[in-house]
Nucleic acid binder design. Structure first.
Lengths: 118, 118
DNA sequence: CTCATTTACGGTCGTCGTAAATATG
DNA sequence: CATATTTACGACGACCGTAAATGAG
């Protein structure tokens, strides 16, 4: 149940058509068929009821869809959090001072921190 | 960034020791090293600062940890939702009637549904 | 020297494409 | 018969183990 297969599932669930979903993902459509089938095997439940003329979600598929979307969104969030930390847009800040006037400024900062947290 | 690698990351982050994490996951510890390294490559950020004597989280690793736990929890939720739908513990209910008295009962049901939803 | 991580290497399985087969309306 | 899904098959890479190499204290 990796992100790739979930994206395949969501695409097919939204298009209700393996060919269009394949175009959207720039993948060959036989692969979508196998991907969905692998997901169904892994979860032990059919996700679509399909003939060559109609594709529709089963109850299990309907149940999975919102969870799949949430998982994909959360994955992006996680990526973003790591990127932010890497680029220093979050996490601990390190501050250095130099020069005679610095001691005064640091003293003021420390006083303000102490008063704001207590 | 599949569930497997996230579990490896969480285990190492919790143990701060590749060997113990490997034991916990019943995996060979060289594989953990490569798994984490692959995750780091994929995310473009180091997750641990490690020597042979000490393993500690980087800011990026610290940022990832809660997201990784959330993703694993959500994955389990998704599995559970599908299992519930498969086993009929959720989703739409189909009811059939047969016999002469059925029509009366169905009429009463429909009346109650109509009055309760409006 | 010892303990822990990493690199090297190999077998097996999953990914993903193209081409042929199958099934539905 | 036309259109859509599935199966067959093959190349490539990922997974995951064992054994050897590397590095820190």
């Amino acid at each position: 149940m990796d992100a790739q297969k979930l994206q395949v599932f969501v695409a097919v669930a939204e298009e209700l058509h393996f060919g269009r979903a394949a175009d959207r993902l720039h993948l060959a459509q036989p692969y979508l068929s196998r991907s969905v089938r692998a997901l169904e095997a892994e979860l032990g439940a059919d996700l679509f009821r399909r003939t060559t003329r109609k594709v529709e979600l089963t109850p299990a598929g309907t149940a999975l869809l919102p969870h799949a979307r949430a998982l994909l969104a959360r994955t992006d969030e996680a990526r973003g959090a790591v990127a932010a930390a890497r680029d220093g847009r979050s996490g601990r800040v390190r501050i250095s001072f130099a020069g005679p006037s610095a001691h005064v400024v640091v003293g003021q900062l420390l006083a303000r921190c102490a008063s704001s947290t207590h």
